[in-house]
Every structure is written in structure tokens, then in C-alpha cells.
């Protein structure tokens, strides 16, 4: 599946959470929609090799799961 550049999905750097979304699974359009629809949730979207790196503004695990739920439903629409 992802033979190269394997990274943990969720990373914490300082006070920020980052999720890595592989280009094989997530289209660019999805990233655009996330940025538009969740400006309070997502601080930035960056491109890193095979991945998109999404910086989240979440504090608790419940918010992280809320983001994942949002990601699942959005990913099905696109």
C-alpha cells in the first residue's frame, strides 16, 4: 500500500496536531473542501511528498474523532 515514506497518521508537534493524508486515498479536491468547510478545525494544509499534511486545531480526543467522522463522510461525497 504505502511502501515508502511511512509516517504515523497523527503526529503531535508542540501544541499542534497534524494528520497525514496519503495522496492515493485522498483527492486534492477533498483538501480544498476541508479548508473551506472547517476553517475552525484546520489551521493549514501542506503538501509533503506522497502526503498532504493537515494541521488541526483540536484539543481533545473527541474533537479528533469528530474530524475523522467529517473526513469519512466528505471522502465518500468526492
Amino acid at each position: 500500500m504505502f511502501q515508502k515514506n511511512m509516517h504515523p497518521f497523527l503526529q503531535k508537534r508542540g501544541n499542534s496536531f497534524f494528520v497525514r493524508l496519503h495522496r492515493k486515498l485522498y483527492k486534492k479536491e477533498l483538501l480544498v473542501r476541508i479548508k473551506e468547510e472547517k476553517p475552525d478545525f484546520v489551521r493549514a494544509v501542506m503538501s509533503r511528498g506522497n502526503y498532504y499534511l493537515v494541521e488541526l486545531m483540536v484539543n481533545e480526543e473527541t474533537e479528533y474523532f469528530a474530524f475523522l467522522n467529517y473526513l469519512i463522510s466528505l471522502n465518500q461525497e468526492i
Binding site: 500500500m1 497518521f9 497523527l10 494528520v19 493524508l21 496519503h22 492515493k24 486515498l25 474523532f65 475523522l68 467522522n69 473526513l71 469519512i72 471522502n75
Partner: peptide
């Protein structure tokens, strides 16, 4: 397909 994290949420 999906990421493991999406399946975990499911």
C-alpha cells in the same frame, strides 16, 4: 480503501 484511522472511527 481508507486509512486505518477511518476504519478505527467506523
Amino acid at each position: 480503501g481508507y486509512s486505518a484511522e477511518e476504519f478505527m472511527t467506523f
